[in-house]
Nucleic acid binder design. Structure first.
Lengths: 179, 179
DNA sequence: AGTGAAAAGCGCGCTTC
DNA sequence: GAAGCGCGCTTTTCACT
């Protein structure tokens, strides 16, 4: 049993049977229905509006307005297919810890804007600590990965050090773990 | 100009103007239309079926069958909303490098299966190298993050070392970079 | 496997409470 | 801010190529 998250732990039994506006104050601009919509759409981004409406107990038209509002406010940034990269011929993934040695802001900016466009790049984290960046990439073969690192990272004048860790397994948490 | 990716670099000028079946042998079970569907759905997971059909030059009914097949074969695992965690009250993210000291397989398995369910956990990477796991988490406040690490990682008998790096910025690569 | 037409279901604006 | 109605379009099935 988790005693830590401490978020929204008001202990109130959730009972949304009666009509009328929700009495909950809403920590930010989101009420409980909004949160539920976000949770449902995180689990299944193609869920139909009807189904969403029924699952949250509101009318379809209201649901549509809610979801649109969530998108407009940037709470939901977009929807993406979750693809098995192995099936696309990229069975390898790696995380590459990168240390930057550049002193000019321009050179750092150049690095930061070129990397996301490199082939196989999935995402780039700018982090605190001993390393400056953590790069998540996919590759077709070990050789392709090695070439990627040599040609795009080691060869980059801004990069001082690059350490590659192969990803054996990537477990994505279920969305309801966030609430 | 990238001279590296080396994938599908057959040097053949791509010319899919003529009708009839594609002459391309297809590296795995996916032809060019499948790849395009995957690419489009990665960019916009809620794209309508007829829009997909038109964009790929096939009939809506065919498109539906293609996409279903992609899902059934596991090429597309699912669709998910991309959510701004800050808007949900979790403005902090971190990557935590974890070293495991457990000697029994059971204890490692226990760790691996408990972590994805912990509050705020986004994903868990099992990696090669000096560290065993890399954990991507979100948190409401620095204190909540600290508590998470202390209660769930430092306190875990399987964990020997946990090093937290705050994520300043997370740049997700555009999907077309993978082709 | 790909297509076209027809039926079922959904998106989404408008009006009312 | 939420619900109900209704039109138009999309999705989805099915017989056919």
């Amino acid at each position: 049993m988790d005693s830590v998250d401490g978020l929204y732990s008001d202990g109130m039994p959730k009972d949304r049977r009666s009509p009328g506006p929700a009495p909950r104050p809403a920590p930010d601009g989101l009420d409980e229905v909004d949160r539920e919509l976000v949770r449902l759409l995180t689990a299944d981004g193609r869920m139909a509006n009807n189904a969403l409406a029924e699952a949250t107990g509101i009318a379809p038209s209201t649901c549509l307005a809610r979801v649109r509002s969530l998108r407009e406010r940037g709470v939901i940034r977009g929807f993406h297919a979750d693809v098995d990269l192995g099936a696309l011929g990229q069975p390898l993934q790696a995380l590459i810890a990168i240390r930057i040695g550049a002193h000019s802001r321009d050179e750092i900016d150049r690095f930061r804007s070129k990397v996301p466009g490199l082939p196989g790049v999935l995402s780039l984290f700018h982090v605190s600590g001993a390393n400056d960046y953590l790069l998540h990439v996919s590759a077709a073969t070990p050789d392709a990965l090695r070439e990627f690192v040599l040609d795009h990272l080691t060869a980059d004048p801004a990069v001082v050090h690059a350490e590659t860790s192969l990803i054996f397994e990537h477990i994505r948490a279920t969305p309801d773990a966030r609430n």
